[in-house]
């Protein structure tokens, strides 16, 4: 047992060392979260003092077509891009986890592109999808498909962004690969001896073992795709005809172009609630389905 004096001394050092984070947390996280809650109940344009309007902003949001459109756009992107990316990165991880030549090269070539994100990636893909001279339409032309006006056509702009998102699946693939390599070989051998086929072995042995990784990737993927901004800002400016008017882009326009900080704060808070609820729900559901090694306290 430690003496009281010693543990008090230890406590002082603890708070001494974590103080940078504690200050940063209060100034750059806690205060902004509370302040944006306050602003969300006000009309605020930075020049005049915030004016309290109760639930006025939330009420307006409810009838705001642009807001609902941004929700729709973001959910559409999320529900298509996230599951597909997750699925593909798992499949490629499993392919690379086989006994095949050049595994190292495949692995590197798959995950290097995921390091190139942001504007460089957006510009590159804007050019790849160029209707006249882009690589993508050239590829399609080899199959006799007419040029598609990707980012100029509201039917295709979103799909172009979804295709772009696959380029970043290497990071997820790498995480799955690490998970797959943690699956004990003797379990796979045992399944094989028991006469289980590939699919059965995957479904009953491998997948349960990597399900925590899967879950984590799912949560991170959802949270990231709720926050898509770069593509909308760089490539589409929300168009054509608002078909890529993402949620965070909508916040940005309302706050920093229309100077409606209160209104935008209300949207920020809705985003915060959405992220919290989704994380919580997935964690809850996962308690039932996800296998954690060493069992779980109940």
């Amino acid at each position: 047992m430690k003496s009281t004096r010693e543990s008090r001394r230890e406590g002082r050092w603890f708070y001494f060392f974590i103080s940078p984070w504690l200050i940063g947390f209060i100034v750059f996280a806690l205060f902004p979260v509370l302040a944006s809650l306050y602003y969300s109940f006000t009309e605020y344009d930075i020049i005049h003092a915030p004016e309290f309007i109760g639930f006025g902003n939330y009420n307006e949001l409810f009838h705001d077509e642009q807001f609902w459109n941004s929700v729709k756009v973001t959910l559409k992107y999320t529900f298509i891009s996230v599951p597909l990316t997750l699925f593909l990165s798992l499949v490629f991880a499993m392919l690379i986890n086989q006994k095949i030549p050049f595994r190292g090269i495949f692995r590197t070539a798959m995950y290097f592109p995921s390091m190139i994100s942001g504007v460089s990636m957006a510009l590159l893909w804007f050019w790849v999808f160029n209707p006249q001279a882009g690589l993508f339409n050239y590829g399609l032309s080899l199959f006799g498909i007419d040029p598609i006006h990707w980012f100029l056509d509201e039917k295709y702009a979103m799909w172009a962004l979804i295709i772009m998102s696959f380029w970043g699946l290497g990071g997820g693939m790498l995480i799955f690969l690490a998970g797959l390599q943690g699956v004990p070989a003797h379990l796979l051998e045992a399944a094989k001896l028991d006469g289980a086929g590939r699919l059965r072995t995957f479904w009953n042995v491998t997948f349960p073992l990597i399900s925590p990784v899967f879950l984590f990737q799912l949560i991170i993927g959802l949270i990231e795709s709720f926050q898509v901004f770069t593509q909308a800002y760089t490539i589409t400016q929300g168009g054509p005809n608002y078909s890529t008017w993402f949620y965070v882009y909508n916040i940005y326009i309302n706050a920093f172009k229309n100077f409606r900080y209160g209104y935008a704060s209300a949207m920020s808070w809705i985003l915060l609630i959405a992220v919290t609820v989704i994380t919580f729900v997935i964690m809850k559901l996962s308690n039932r389905y996800v296998y954690y090694e060493g069992g779980r306290e109940r």
């Binding site: 902004p32 979260v33 709720f226 926050q227 901004f229 706050a255 704060s265 920020s268 985003l271």
Partner: peptide, 10 residues
């Protein structure tokens, strides 16, 4: 889990 857009305005 805290999204930057949720705190960027303040």
């Amino acid at each position: 889990m805290l999204p930057y857009p949720a705190i960027m305005i303040p």
